[in-house]
């Protein structure tokens, strides 16, 4: 029993670290793209407002995708492995 608990706890911690790092990276890339898009010209309004609005919109879509990818995918992989190894 302790083994499973250890797996769940450490797995959750490790995946949370991965989630944080990927969030920082994705937001950084998105901010850079927004800046380039504004600097390319043709957008009215202030630069800061444009970037802030784009980042706010990005936040929702990113969170959904990231939660799915970072937490669900490893859990599915573990489940498939358990099935393939033990129930052949």
């Amino acid at each position: 029993m302790g083994g499973i608990i250890r797996l769940v706890v450490f797995g959750f911690l490790a995946l949370s670290v991965v989630y944080l790092i990927v969030t920082v990276y994705a937001r950084s890339v998105r901010r850079e793209n927004l800046e380039k898009e504004f600097d390319a010209g043709g957008i009215e309004g202030s630069r800061d407002a444009f970037i802030a609005e784009g980042m706010a919109r990005y936040r929702h879509s990113l969170r959904k995708k990231l939660l799915l990818g970072v937490y669900l995918v490893p859990m599915a992989v573990v489940a498939i492995t358990i099935y393939l190894v033990n129930y052949q």
Binding site: R6, L7, F10, V78, T81, I82, V85, N86
Partner: peptide, 15 residues
């Protein structure tokens, strides 16, 4: 195997 490493999650060695 244990539940942590290596990640085979094998517990059916009797079978």
């Amino acid at each position: 195997t244990g539940w942590v490493w290596p990640p085979y999650f094998k517990y059916d060695s009797s079978n």
